[in-house]
Design a protein around this nucleic acid. Structure first.
Lengths: 235, 235
DNA sequence: GTCTATAATGGGATAGAC
DNA sequence: GTCTATCCCATTATAGAC
């Protein structure tokens, strides 16, 4: 069961020049890159520090020197990007709330602020970001009882709260709980899709690709914006 | 292979036949129950056979005696319920396709055939079913590259295909790919929600409960039925 | 900071008595 | 079918040389 993941997925951790000029600062980064990639595919339990060290071309002991423990390394992977990522999403939400026009369009702008910002990082932020986004979605799909999800919560809980507030302000005619339901459905689909489980590819026979995230956004935003009307949103 | 030890040793035979027949099936069932529960929370890698044996009040060696290997045990957990479960969903779909009325209602009936049937098993099938449904959703959220997802695919891929067909037949005015997108969104939200990640509870401050799946169905079906109108479905 | 070596533990799997 | 005992290997983590 433990096959070489790089061969299967054709993926590598974020690449760095082979020739090391300054090893010291780069080593920790390489370990983070490797951990980010491997954790994003198999989760916390499915990856060993040995695999991470090998993927990073680093000796095993260095993972402990730089990060102390496996759990610490996992947290470090998230902490490297989470604050910046959450801030980007918050900024996009602010811009979306400044949009004027029909409420349907304003609703779409809000939803797009979340999914399009995430997709932008995954598609145009470099290979590390793609892995990070997958990891983010992966963790979001796990029970909150797991300890390793807590770093994720501290960074993103308030973001989600702000989105619900924005939608509630846009739709005073809706019951507050219905707004929460609707956004939860949107968020649920988002996190499922971004793990790239490959289901979409298989079910469509390749006509729809999980990797084509831009096409995803174009379908997802109008679909979910319309969904709110099923819960009583006036158009 | 599995000879009766009493015959070989010449000891008395018929002393415990009833006890053996009662115990034999029960042990394997207890192991399956424990594995089902633990796998559903922490996944394949996050659980050890020792934990499973302890949870089942059984010695470690018995897990190997009854199931051979860890992978085999995982498959056995799925095989115990998957065929019955898939058949229930298929039957519900057939009944939904017999519904007459407005297309919106027929669309809701189809979506409900999936989610309500799953929720029915989770809520009213007993504790084992609740764990199975969580495991089902858990695995659906994992990359298809993982080998342990294949037993799920063989049991459920055709079910999903039939749902897409039913929706496509209902909406000839929609592009076939858009129907696939819409159902994929629905399925994505379904699998995310059923892992009971606890997000909903946290975000709503307890006003919405992940465990209240019946309330979920009441919101989810109209929401996603309306979503299709965002992709060009005539009402 | 990086290396080799090793401790200490837990993992899956098996043998053989009963 | 169930038990005890054990093998063998992978795991996380640490010690100490350089």
């Amino acid at each position: 069961m433990e096959k070489n993941l790089a061969e299967i997925t054709g993926q590598k951790a974020a690449s760095h020049p082979k020739v090391d000029r300054r090893r010291a600062p780069e080593t920790a980064e390489r370990i983070l890159d490797a951990a980010e990639m491997l954790f994003s595919w198999r989760g916390f339990y499915g990856v060993s520090l040995r695999e991470i060290a090998a993927e990073a071309n680093v000796k095993l002991a260095l993972t402990h020197y730089h990060f102390g423990s496996k759990e610490n390394l996992f947290s470090a992977v998230i902490d490297r990007r989470a604050a910046d990522h959450a801030a980007r999403i918050e900024r996009a939400l602010e811009q979306a709330m400044a949009v004027t026009g029909a409420r349907r369009e304003r609703r779409e702008a809000i939803l797009s602020a979340l999914i399009a910002t995430i997709v932008d990082r995954a598609m145009r932020g470099g290979p590390g970001w793609k892995n990070y986004v997958r990891l983010l979605a992966f963790v979001a799909n796990h029970p909150q009882e797991e300890e390793y999800v807590s770093p994720f919560r501290t960074h993103y809980d308030h973001v989600i709260h702000d989105f619900v507030d924005a939608l509630s302000a846009l739709h005073p005619e809706m019951a507050a709980l219905d707004v929460q339901w609707g956004f939860f459905f949107f968020q649920a689909a988002t996190t499922h899709i971004l793990v790239e489980s490959g289901m979409l590819d298989r079910q469509s026979g390749g006509a729809l690709l999980s990797s084509d995230l831009d096409a995803l956004v174009d379908r997802m935003v109008p679909f979910f914006a319309a969904g709110f009307m099923g819960l009583g949103a006036g158009d």
